[in-house]
């Protein structure tokens, strides 16, 4: 009869004393190999008495399991102890990824703003930049002798207006002619946002550019109210600038809306206390808006008195400058990689 406890104890001691894989292999051969101890034990079964047989069988199986397990364990330990450190990779080295480019910040801001309105049922439309005096001024109730029509305030083109020979085409000085383009083409109800470039002959400095982006908004239907204008722009400002901002609607003047308003938001720097960013006012002017002047509706031959509408316009660069603390408008058009890569 085999003394399984003694055999197991001795085997485990020997295994535990292993220092390398060769020794472990030798022990495997000694115990588990073809001519090793365990085959010998199993072979002895044939001579064992019927009472001993199950005991030997059970004991041998247990022994084999324990030795196998111990050998696996020791192999792992020995492998770890003999690991070649030069095979270790520096997991802190930088990963390698394909470079991703960046959408221009103005594109991003335009899309952010447009998507807010798209979510509210508006559609995005774009209008031409080379416009007629009718679209840019007359239809918007801007009188013939208005200063903004002067060559000091509007770029005129050498091209003649095909519909009004004698007059020149111009570069739109705001996106509001986009309102006229839409209304000439479609009957209400309509709700559009019109993003695009506009041009003014301003001397370029940190806050002026001869080209910049605006977004125009227009909603025309029966029974559109001033209270709707307030509600719509409140939703917009809170989504764009954050729920916590405070807004105010301040009376203003635009020839193409009446009543007209400018919207201010509480200064994000000083929270309304007054600082250099808001010019000590505590408020930042962010957009102009109002109820569409009935004279604009008559310019596009909408039936008198049937429709009311709301309109608004905002400067995209200004929004970006406020949101990201950019102080020079020229940087948008320089396209320095160090600027583009930040957004």
């Amino acid at each position: 009869m085999w003394n399984f406890d003694d055999i197991q104890q001795k085997a485990l001691q020997e295994i535990d004393a292993c220092r390398d894989l060769d020794e472990a292999e030798a022990l495997r051969v000694k115990y588990l190999g073809r001519k090793g101890l365990l085959p010998e034990i199993f072979a002895s079964l044939s001579q064992a008495s019927p009472e001993e047989k199950p005991l030997i069988g059970k004991g041998a199986n247990q022994l084999r399991a324990r030795i196998t397990e111990a050998l696996e364990g020791i192999k792992k330990r020995v492998q770890e102890e003999t690991f070649d450190p030069t095979q270790r990779i520096d997991v802190t080295l930088p990963g390698v990824a394909p470079v991703l480019g960046h959408k221009h910040i103005l594109t991003q801001i335009i899309d952010d703003i447009c998507q807010i309105f798209v979510g509210l049922g508006f559609v995005v439309q774009e209008g031409p930049e080379m416009e007629t005096e009718f679209h840019n001024f007359s239809a918007l109730n801007i009188p013939v002798d208005h200063p903004s029509r002067d060559a000091f305030d509007t770029f005129y083109l050498e091209s003649k207006d095909p519909g009004n020979p004698g007059r020149h085409l111009l570069l739109r000085s705001h996106t509001s002619p986009g309102q006229i383009c839409i209304m000439e083409k479609y009957a209400p109800p309509l709700a559009v946002v019109i993003p695009g470039k506009v041009y003014r002959p301003d001397a370029v400095d940190a806050s002026h550019s001869f080209m910049f982006y605006q977004i125009e908004g227009l909603l025309v239907d029966e029974h559109v109210k001033f209270s709707d204008l307030k509600g719509l722009l409140t939703v917009f400002c809170k989504r764009f600038f954050g729920e916590e901002i405070i807004m105010r609607f301040r009376p203003h003047f635009f020839p193409f809306t009446e009543p007209s308003a400018e919207v201010d938001i509480s200064c994000y720097i000083c929270k309304g206390k007054g600082c250099s960013v808001c010019g000590r006012k505590g408020w930042l002017e962010i957009l102009g808006c109002g109820m569409v002047n009935p004279k604009v509706f008559s310019a596009v031959n909408y039936p008198k008195g049937k429709y009311t509408g709301l309109a608004f316009g905002l400067g995209v660069e200004r929004m970006a400058m406020l949101k990201y603390g950019i102080h020079d408008i020229r940087i948008f058009f320089e396209n320095d990689n160090r600027f583009l890569n930040q957004f």
Partner: peptide
């Protein structure tokens, strides 16, 4: 405002 389905 009520923004209705529209023509544009």
């Amino acid at each position: 405002p009520l923004v209705r389905a529209q023509n544009v």
